[in-house]
Amino acid sequence: MDWLFREDRYEPGSDSLKFIDKSLMSILKILSKIDRLGGQRRGILYGVTPPLKLISTILTVVCVSTSRDATFLLSAGLFVLINLIMLEKSDRKRVLALGITASSFSAVMLIPSMATGNIINSLIIVYKVLLTVSMANILSVSTGWFDVSASLKLLLIPDIFILVLEITLKYIYLLGEISLNMLTALKIRSIGKNNNKYSSISALMGNLFLKSKEMGEELYSAMECRGFTGEYKRVLAFNISRIDAVYAIIVLALTAAYF
């Protein structure tokens, strides 16, 4: 009975859990981004029909990337600003944060080049990065992801790519949750010092693959039971609303400025 009264002296050696925490954080970040997309939002930009928005975004990104005309680049900047104003506050913050991160990253990368005198071209690259990253993110936050993948059919993308894309979007979430649980389990089980953590990671990824394989097969059986033949049919119901018309006119005016 003696040992019961003795004070316990277990002092585990220091152990680094940093990489588990980091993985947890990056998966959580992705999941929260996807999770957020469930709710419907109000706002003018959210109402523009998705195919139009997708095509306009690709068109303007291509124009911005190929243009060296100051007037056009400035009006494209104005267009992005107007788009930003139309967004909800939280979305606006996110788009801005991502755009500024990306462009300041390229600014840092281009410092040596600027030091040797290549200033204007470097600044144009930084500005263009800000514009294009913002445009992609504006599309992403203001449009339901499955609406985007449905619009791809209009761009003559083969069915197999659309099928794979839709499953990918769904499964990033599902598999992300599974890996989150497994990582948390690994973290909780690593009491004190656990030297086997690193080898657990490959087992974790392997398990993720096997699990996803099983889920994929079940998914397809379920789809087949509901009559899916591998082909997507899209009914082209083009209801052009007033917002769509205004949006289209603005984009057309912008591309006209390009020429």
Binding site: L163, V164, I167, T168, K170, Y171, G216, E217, Y220
Partner: peptide, 11 residues
Amino acid sequence: KMPLLGVGAAF
């Protein structure tokens, strides 16, 4: 096995 592609992409 077709969905495996999507699952592979997500993976």
